[in-house]
């Protein structure tokens, strides 16, 4: 067994897992964080996207032991009990999701982008979401939602994304 200590959504957690366990499996099956989804399991669909040390990654393509000591942010870490993250609010207001399966991954990709680049062009948003497949929406309203958050962050510098 591999002993893995990670900070998930601000909280330090230690678990023992078989060495071949992926980060996604660690999150879903050992820590009960089922927001990140198991889609293709080979890095094509992006449903498993989480943020590790500030960078968006496919959690299905990392071994749990590779993130030992690292900081992991999942979709569960964005909202508080009384307030959604601005991206979540924008996705809700714009009707950006339909079935919603891809949503956690898309929102984490968008968050990673906005954290690095608060005012991205549409081209940059498209590039940032290229690794997240959605079979329902056609993406337009997701891009509009990310733009809306980017604009609100810029017009109100005090509004920071989590």
């Amino acid at each position: 067994m591999a002993k893995v200590t990670i900070t998930v959504n601000g909280e330090a957690r230690t678990v023992s897992v078989p060495p071949e366990t992926t980060l996604l499996k660690l999150l879903r099956e050992h820590l009960n964080l089922t927001g990140a989804k198991l889609g293709c399991d080979v890095g094509d669909c992006g449903a498993c996207t989480v943020i590790v040390n500030g960078k968006s990654v496919n959690s299905c393509l990392m071994l749990a032991s590779q993130v030992d000591g690292f900081d992991v942010l999942t979709i569960e870490g964005l909202a508080t009990t009384d307030q959604l993250h601005p991206l979540q609010t924008a996705f809700e207001e714009k009707g950006s999701l339909q079935c919603g399966f891809c949503g956690p991954g898309v929102i984490m990709s968008a968050k990673a982008l906005l954290d690095e680049e608060p005012d991205p062009s549409v081209e940059r948003i498209r590039d940032a979401l290229a690794g997240n497949l959605c079979r329902c929406t056609g993406y337009s309203k997701m891009i509009e939602a990310v733009q809306a958050v980017a604009n609100s962050v810029n017009s109100h510098p005090s509004v920071k994304s989590a």
Binding site: P19, E20, T22, D41, V42, G43, N58, C60, L61, M62, L63, S65, Q66
Partner: peptide, 21 residues
């Protein structure tokens, strides 16, 4: 990075005994 190795191993009938990270 694991992006090729893990994608391959998930569909492989035989895997390595040891993975050097």
């Amino acid at each position: 990075g694991g992006t090729d190795l893990l994608a391959d191993l998930k569909f492989s009938s035989h895997g390595p005994a040891m993975v050097v990270d």
